[in-house]
């Protein structure tokens, strides 16, 4: 589903070069849930953003569902339709109601009829548990509710992969659970997911595989029980000692 090979992404700022993603190679198969952990500034977000073309990368290849992002002739918009993304800051469209947030891209991008788009939207709102809020504007929702709308908005495009960039980090603690529950349900249903998170409990419970990144490098990967109880690399141990 996702095949990343030797991906390098550098930022040039104030005379110094930051290797935000440094030669990362990994693959995500269909239905797999991959969790990326690592200290702040280790390049987790940057790598995730490379996966749907929000960042361009300097070298290497990322192939998503057969489409090579590095190839010039690839239409990035076609790739993005298949890759849903959920952001830390929700990024709902504040001038649209909850329902419109979910129907807009379906109509504009997928060319669905309004009735069809609304039906999909209502079904998804029910699934994430906020069917009664469809006429509200995002500003009137709690953080947890906003993030669930954002998940529904991404799902409405019927993506083949869902990317989550710290979806619960901007939430008050009591709202983290409701968002994680939705994500767990998605994982059970067989959605292919790449999740950047600091929720180690979620990683342990849901992930098929955990990637640990540090300083742009993919330091270690493995099944959760192995990474958490028996990390091989020194840097992984230090990081886990800090967060657990």
């Amino acid at each position: 589903m996702i095949d990343a090979r030797n991906v390098v992404k550098t930022f040039h700022g104030r005379g110094q070069v930051v290797r935000a993603v440094d030669d990362v190679t990994t693959a995500v198969t269909k239905g797999e849930v991959v969790v990326i952990i690592g200290p702040s500034g280790s390049g987790k977000s940057t790598f995730l953003r490379c996966l749907n073309g929000l960042e361009t990368f300097d070298s290497g290849h990322i192939v998503i569902d057969g489409m090579d992002l590095a190839a010039k002739k690839t239409d990035i918009n076609l790739v993005r339709r298949e890759v849903g993304m959920v952001f830390q800051q929700f990024n709902l469209f504040p001038h649209k109601t909850v329902l419109e947030n979910i129907t807009l891209a379906q109509q504009v991008v997928r060319g669905r009829k309004p009735a069809e788009a609304e039906e999909t939207a209502r079904k998804l709102l029910k699934k994430v548990g906020i069917a009664e809020k469809e006429a509200e504007y995002p500003a009137r929702l709690s953080g947890g509710q906003q993030q669930r709308v954002a998940i529904a908005r991404a799902l409405a495009m019927n993506p083949k992969v869902m990317l989550f960039d710290e979806p619960t980090s901007a939430l008050d603690p009591e709202m983290v659970g409701e968002v994680l529950d939705v994500m767990k349900q998605l994982a059970r249903e067989g959605m292919t997911m790449v999740v950047v998170t600091h929720e180690m409990g979620f990683a342990r419970e849901v992930a098929d595989r955990v990637l640990f990144m540090d300083a742009g490098k993919l330091v270690e990967e493995g099944i959760p029980s192995e990474i958490f109880s028996n990390p091989k690399e020194e840097r992984t141990k230090i990081f886990l000692n800090q967060v657990l």
Binding site: L54, R80, R81, G84, F87, F93, A154
Partner: peptide
């Protein structure tokens, strides 16, 4: 970014 990630041009 949100709009683009949904596939909008």
């Amino acid at each position: 970014e949100a709009a683009r990630s949904l596939g909008m041009t």
